[in-house]
Design a protein around this nucleic acid. Structure first.
Lengths: 270, 270
DNA sequence: AAGTGGTCTAGACCACTAT
DNA sequence: TAGTGGTCTAGACCACTTT
């Protein structure tokens, strides 16, 4: 008969180039992805065993495992102890939308300008006091900003910070170019973690005016609450943007371009 | 002087329990996370070198590297060749919202009921034809469904599928309990990948009626386009839900409960 | 030159699943 | 019992950065 055993499935695939700048495990990840994307390995089917992959590609078990672990982390493949490793069918819940889809929120985009519209120290309303876990009537810093990207307003931001008498407000400090610096606070307080939440809204009249959008149009509201290392809330606020300026998109399954998803990011340090 | 060298920073941390069911590399991930969450290791600071970690915890270099790789993947830490590994300051762009926040879209929730409102074969409008890459006027399957979760309607779904004469429409087949089965299509066509996109909208009157929501209220629209292994579009459609039923939330930085993020998922196979 | 992270080996041992 | 994935070792060699 002509049925191929699964150990022969990848025989037509390229081998690993030991002279390449690309590490062997990355090459193997790409070879396997290609095999799946090309339909050689179909959802639900079993991959060649790790021992077979070692022999076929001439690498050590650790290298094969590493490649398979990466595919497992990406939800492409599903290893089961004692049974084998299987190609995962595409799963809707696997989709993740990341905030980089929001213009201006990523530190790398230096195109973004932050214009300070208003800043003052005020007594906390009941809502603000609850969010920041301070007594109602405590003093908090209130501010309103406009994020401008390529000369066009993208977000209105409202924020409330706990007022720290030890750190006077310097207006210039508020006109930061990156939102990153904004939250890391050029001051002493470091942020440990944050909670974010997105919901759709109808643009309020004033925000619509600032965003040069029509009032009543649909928009996103991105709420944020940041905590310091003592788990105390430090800042609360939200961004409002028009729906047609911001869109969250993502892919599930194997992207059209397999590409190198595994680049390590070398960011600047704080 | 009393300044601690960074190699001593983790001296107070627990050691690795070789009798634990938890693998050494997971224990090490958690120890390091704890150290960061507790403020022992602050954003921007350098971790003990890998060699130091090997000695401190009595594990081999590969085990240390594995733990650090996991933290790097989680954007907690930033290894730089030749310099050292540093604690990453929290970065807004790191936030990812996943679709599991949407009720009913994950296969695991068996609480979800899908009610078929309408299904028919129709000629494709210009828009539908463009999305599905077929000739305008070709026949496509049109359907409208209602997703019900715990007796309450959550989403209206409109979908268009390329009409395959070889596979007649079985109405019962449409009344699937999980949306997963819906897209994997109990038929012959397998889906390779999909493109998803979320945008806010204003609920149309008819959808609002089905969702028992007030017309004109804000809502989410989740658009999807699925492709087969030949890169041909198979299905296009969108879900509409009211804003107050669906909310996308996420965390950036270190979650309050360090927990075991590293569980391997053992899903049922197709 | 010394120290750092990055890759890789060639096994070992274990836990689990199938037959 | 044989085959599978899962963990781990104790090094090696390399590329890079800092001093």
């Amino acid at each position: 008969m002509t049925r191929k055993p699964r150990s022969r499935v990848l025989d037509a695939s390229p081998s690993i180039d030991r002279d390449s700048f690309e590490p062997a495990y990355i090459q193997l990840v790409n070879i396997l992805r290609q095999g799946i994307a090309a339909g050689l390995l179909r959802p639900g089917e079993q991959l060649p065993s790790e021992a077979q992959l070692c022999r076929r590609f001439g690498v050590s078990p650790m290298t094969v495992r590493r490649a398979i672990n990466i595919l497992a982390d990406q939800d492409v493949v599903n290893p089961q102890q004692g049974r084998g490793t299987y190609v995962k069918p595409l799963h809707l819940g696997a989709a993740t939308f990341n905030l980089t889809g929001f213009p201006g929120l990523s530190a790398s985009t230096s195109q973004t300008v932050v214009r300070l519209l208003e800043v003052r120290v005020n007594k906390a309303s009941e809502l603000v006091a609850r969010k920041l876990a301070v007594d109602a009537g405590s003093r908090v810093i209130e501010m309103r900003r406009l994020l401008i990207e390529a000369e066009r307003p993208v977000f209105v931001h409202r924020g409330y910070l706990v007022y720290d008498p030890g750190r006077p407000i310097v207006e210039a400090e508020m006109e930061v170019t990156t939102l990153q610096a904004l939250f890391s606070g050029s001051g002493s307080n470091l942020i440990k973690r944050g909670e974010l939440s997105i919901e759709p809204t109808i643009l309020p009249a004033e925000d619509a005016r600032l965003l040069l959008a029509t009032p009543g149009a649909p928009g996103f509201c991105l709420e944020h609450l940041f905590f310091d290392f003592q788990e105390c809330p430090l800042s609360w606020g939200w961004f409002v943007g028009a729906a047609d300026r911001v869109r969250l998109t993502t892919q599930v399954g194997l992207p059209a371009t397999p590409a190198a998803t595994e680049e390590r990011r070398h960011d600047a340090l704080a």
